[in-house]
Amino acid sequence: MPTDAKLLLLDRDVVEPALQAEQVMAAVREAFILHSRRAGRIFPVVREKLHTGGVFGIKSGDIASRNLLGFKAAGFWPANRGAGGEPHQATIALFDPSTGRPLCIMDGNAITTARTGAAGGLGLQQLARQDSTRICVFGTGVQARVQLQYALKLLPQRCTVQYVNVSGATDPAFEAAFHDRCAIGVAKDRNDAVADSDIVITATPGGGALFEAAAVQPGTHLTCVGADTDGKRELPDAVLQRARIFVDDEVQARSIGECQWAPSLPCTEIGDLLAGTVSFERAATDITVFDMTGLALQDLTVAEFLYRHAQTEHLGTSVAWPW
């Protein structure tokens, strides 16, 4: 066996600058289409609550045509906030599918944030009314920010944004990040904010319904991020029953996404829409929901281009890894 094999390590300072929006969107789009064509496999998801109060998960898969195999170990540790840390933690590993040898281990936090933001952006492009100008965002954390960034980037008109947070108070840092791209302010009433919006983004820990179902008006598009574990939800009862539902993966959505609360309702995988195997012509009064649980293939396609980029640019740290 070779004794001079190397393992490439890519930390946050290498990963973050390489995550350009256009490349990430292209990689995520490719992941959805590969999934639609069943040209890439996703393995059963591990998602378990821990005695520490955290949630630990593993998403893995492979793309045979690309000789790509890997997993992401990730989860949510809410107590990290008290220590000044990020509650979402993720690490991605790529392997040689011919030998099982690890090729690269990289920081997965920024990748998870970027690929989830790009997925929400692709869903918005496909499903939201393109004359949308009013956005309501639940949450002011990392994922709320990236979802709003993609929405403002992709919508052709200048938008008005209302945001809802736990305290109900103004969040100066959140507003400062967007004030030059939109008119933004904290919502006085969450139900009124939903009723007055064309697009609703829910990016919270998924602890329960965030608003009343009657607040959702005809023509609204909802991007739902926070329900990714058994028992989590952000939507109230009766919203899904009124909506055209789109998901990244039907099985995952029905087990850990918003669809776990209405598993018998029909839904469409977004990859089928992007691949052109199904069509959707939005009526002005349609309510659309994109229930995102996150695909391993998204992590793999993004991680692959980062790995190739690092090799080309001689980035990261290479360590001996004999086998």
Rank of each mutant, 00 (worst) to 15 (best):
R81M: 10
E234P: 11
H221A: 06
S167T: 15
R242C: 01
R115I: 13
D286F: 08
F290M: 09
P17F: 03
K6Q: 15
R47K: 12
G40Y: 03
D107A: 15
F32M: 12
A5E: 14
E269Y: 05
L124K: 03
G108H: 05
Q241V: 01
S36I: 01
I201P: 03
A151V: 10
I270N: 07
C182V: 06
T99M: 04
T170D: 09
S318R: 15
H35P: 07
G70E: 08
M25Q: 14
N67L: 09
P156R: 15
F56P: 01
V137F: 06
R38I: 08
I33R: 09
R37G: 03
P263S: 08
A177C: 09
T317C: 09
V137C: 14
I33V: 15
A214N: 10
D62K: 07
E234G: 07
C104A: 10
V137W: 02
Q241D: 10
G294M: 04
A262M: 05
Y307P: 08
I184K: 11
T112F: 10
D11K: 13
L124N: 08
Q149N: 11
G40R: 04
M25F: 04
T116S: 11
D11V: 10
A27E: 03
I287Q: 05
I63K: 05
Q298S: 06
P2W: 05
